[in-house]
Amino acid sequence: MICGVLTVAVGVLVVLSGAVGSVEVSTVQAAKIVIGHLAPGMPWMSDGSLTALQDQAVWQFRLPRALLAGLAGAGLSLAGALMQVTVRNPLAEPYILGVSSGASVGAVLVIVLGSAALGGMSMNLAAFVGALAACVCVAALARKDGALSPTRMILAGVALGTLFSAVTSYLTISTDAQNVVSVLFFLLGSVSAATMSSLIGPAVALVVGCVAAALLARSLNALMTGDESAVSLGVDAARMRAILLVLASLLTGSVVSVAGGIGFVGLVVPHIARIAVGADHRRMLPVAVLGGAVFLMAADLLARTVAAPTEIPLGILTAFVGAPFFLWLMRRSGADRAGFGR
């Protein structure tokens, strides 16, 4: 039922997003344009009730933006849920653990230096490499007595995130003025430059992540109970953590490369999903994925309207929600304890 409600909410937000902008389009017209392109031959597409400008505004600009927000929210939420299992800590998520910052370094290097300087590496690939490098560094620094310490992982993530942010800041001030504006807007997070082609990377990463998470759901449940219990159930804890870190890096890198640094989605949404349907990942993960899409699509709609015609970067809005939530969650569960209780 919850998944059904969230799916309907995604559809409603797509229509609402299509109706918001400088070109006047009603929600009914926005729905007709989307349906008309998905199902060619609809009579309203040629009866003169819709102008070419309205069609272009909805299909080429507003729809890709709404879809990218949904894919980014779903991807970051899934990445956060996987990271929380990896370290058995409800405070873990890509932004807090420095993974988003690592991905940002890779993407900004492409913006500042160009793809050729990095051996022809695309922004998506550079962001993935940066995210994976951040994951490996955090995991290496967080090991204590051969096991990952949740507290050390949070502290290492914060420290490395600050270091990566410093690297990004240096790259920003050392480039020309034209690149500075692009980098700053990118770091704050935005889906305003979305195109249909920019949806491919996050969509592929999300499909891979969802399929893998569905296949590994039982193993995730076992890993959440502790390494000893997981091993007794036939789960290789070290191998499983490596797989989860790669998946989280893939999801985070694909999102950061096209939407910039958007924090706290992977913290807020999985925890709410866990409260709503319990800790069983067979139920929680679908709710987290759809909930992440709804959360970021709603945030993008708010970013476009709350201070119109000025647009607020998504990272600012998610921080306003996520930072207080993080403090509440830290106080409730304790940063030094792994906890996934309701």
Rank of each mutant, 00 (worst) to 15 (best):
I2E: 00
V5Q: 12
V8P: 11
V14D: 02
A19Y: 07
G21F: 00
V23H: 12
E24H: 15
V28Y: 14
Q29W: 04
I33D: 01
I33F: 00
V34A: 01
I35E: 13
G41K: 11
M42I: 13
M42S: 12
S46H: 15
A57F: 05
V58K: 01
V58D: 00
W59V: 00
L63A: 15
P64R: 12
A72V: 13
G73I: 09
G73F: 02
G75E: 04
S77T: 12
A81T: 01
M83Y: 14
M83I: 10
Q84F: 01
Q84H: 03
L91I: 07
A92P: 09
I96C: 04
A103S: 11
G106V: 06
A107G: 08
V110W: 07
L113D: 09
L118G: 14
G119S: 09
G119L: 09
M121D: 05
S122I: 08
M123W: 07
N124Y: 14
A126D: 12
A126E: 11
A127G: 06
F128G: 01
A134H: 07
V136L: 12
V138S: 13
A139C: 11
A140T: 08
G146I: 09
A147Q: 14
P150F: 11
T151H: 10
M153L: 14
L155D: 05
G157F: 05
A159I: 11
T162A: 15
T162M: 14
L163E: 01
L163G: 04
A166H: 01
T168V: 11
S169M: 11
S169Q: 12
L171V: 12
S174A: 11
S174T: 13
D176W: 08
Q178L: 10
V180W: 14
L184T: 15
L184E: 13
F185S: 13
G189H: 08
V191W: 05
A193Q: 14
A203G: 00
V204D: 06
V207W: 07
V208S: 03
G209I: 06
C210Q: 10
V211M: 12
A212K: 04
A212C: 08
A213H: 06
L220V: 03
A222V: 10
V235M: 08
D236V: 08
A237V: 15
M240Y: 03
L245Q: 07
L245D: 03
L245M: 15
V246N: 04
V246K: 02
L251K: 05
V256W: 07
A259F: 02
A259R: 07
I262V: 07
G263A: 07
G263D: 03
G266C: 10
L267W: 01
H271E: 01
A276E: 00
V277A: 02
D280K: 03
H281S: 04
P286G: 08
V289Y: 01
V294W: 03
L296I: 08
L302M: 02
T310S: 14
L314R: 03
G315D: 02
G315K: 00
A319N: 00
F320T: 03
V321P: 04
V321G: 06
V321A: 15
L329R: 03
L329T: 06
R332S: 14
D336V: 11
D336S: 15
D336C: 10
G339D: 15
F340D: 09
G341N: 14
G341H: 13
